[in-house]
Design a protein around this nucleic acid. Structure first.
Lengths: 185, 185
DNA sequence: GCGAAGTGTTCGTCAAACCGAACAACCCGA
DNA sequence: TCGGGTTGTTCGGTTTGACGAACACTTCGC
């Protein structure tokens, strides 16, 4: 459930897509990347299973980050009005609502939440996914936030980030909302 | 200047790191991924140049997104008070200030800005890096925003996202601020 | 109309990634 | 102490990805 798409087809598509975006020919790209054009031809055809070095060379030659070549297509445009939002997380033991604004696509490990908190009991978050990072920008209110043993107090416009893989807490001191960027890795 | 690190060493490190994080043995990982443990051993040793399918299988077996295996390490904790912030972008032709909160590391293509706008002339942004996406959550005020030919008007708590590689504009209708997530690819 | 220069494709050959088994090093229980 | 069961390593053999040349095919220019 992590990487749904068969890689070969995706790479083939990405490769052709990027090359055409760059506006260069298969022959030229092969030359720049130091590959045989036959190799490249087969890759774009979906035949063949490139080595890392090969794909890397193509990424460099195309001037795009590597990951770009192993991921699907981008997205359109979207508006979510305050209070709308489909996916909502509600923590049972705290006055806490989080609205998912933009989920990370398969390999874009960055989820965007709108988080609303009411003063009351603090939200205790045990350490979750190792290596994740939380970014928070406060929209309104005041929130005491951060690692469980050493929280900071922030207000509108303030920004905090901290590792998500250690125990931490949110505690609203007054009705508040914030933007939460959950960055997995 | 796109992918600075030699891939083989990075992959070797990432592989071992992820495996240890998962708390499984080399043998077990090889079994789950359907690979020979000799192969895996060589990969973790930095010897050898895995094929995409091989690396993919490892990503699946480890339960981590593919990109995770071709990228370096993460980060610590940080607080930026409203008004602070080192790197500031000022657009000459608009009342517009953007503060960089969190820059994307080499392969984390996602920059986090705090954007402050004063009503006045609109900020016209020509299409920039192809494939980039902009996410905006309004903190306060009202902003007319989006593709140049079809903008939307948003207020506190509202979320908008749109492709950054088409011409677009920001226009504050009153003093406003917003969180801007610039997502390159 | 015909050669020249470009496109991307399909062939044999070779190097190398992958495999399976045999290997040394370690831990733990009898 | 001596096994059996781990760990991860190193060794030949086979599969296969990458190469380079020859291949059709289109688009020029003389």
């Amino acid at each position: 459930m992590q990487q749904p798409a068969p890689p070969l087809a995706v790479i083939a598509a990405a490769l052709r897509r990027e090359r055409e975006r760059a506006g260069i020919t298969l022959t030229e790209l092969a030359r720049r990347a130091g590959l045989a054009k036959s190799t490249l031809s087969q890759l774009e055809a979906g035949t063949g299973n490139p080595s890392i070095e090969t794909l890397w060379a193509l990424g460099v030659a195309l001037g795009v980050p590597f990951s770009r070549l192993v991921e699907p297509e981008p997205s359109p445009i979207r508006v979510i009005r305050a209070g709308e939002g489909a996916t909502r997380l509600r923590a049972d033991h705290a006055d806490f609502v989080a609205t998912l604004l933009a989920a990370g696509s398969p390999h874009v490990r960055r989820d965007l939440y709108l988080m609303e908190l009411e003063p009351g009991v603090a939200r205790e978050a045990e350490a979750h996914i190792p290596g994740s990072t939380e970014h928070i920008v406060v929209g309104a209110g005041r929130i005491r936030i951060g690692p469980a043993d050493d929280p900071v107090e922030v207000g509108p416009g303030d920004y905090v980030s901290f590792p998500g893989d250690i125990p931490h807490r949110y505690e609203a001191l007054e009705p508040s909302w914030a933007v939460l960027i959950m960055e997995h890795r």
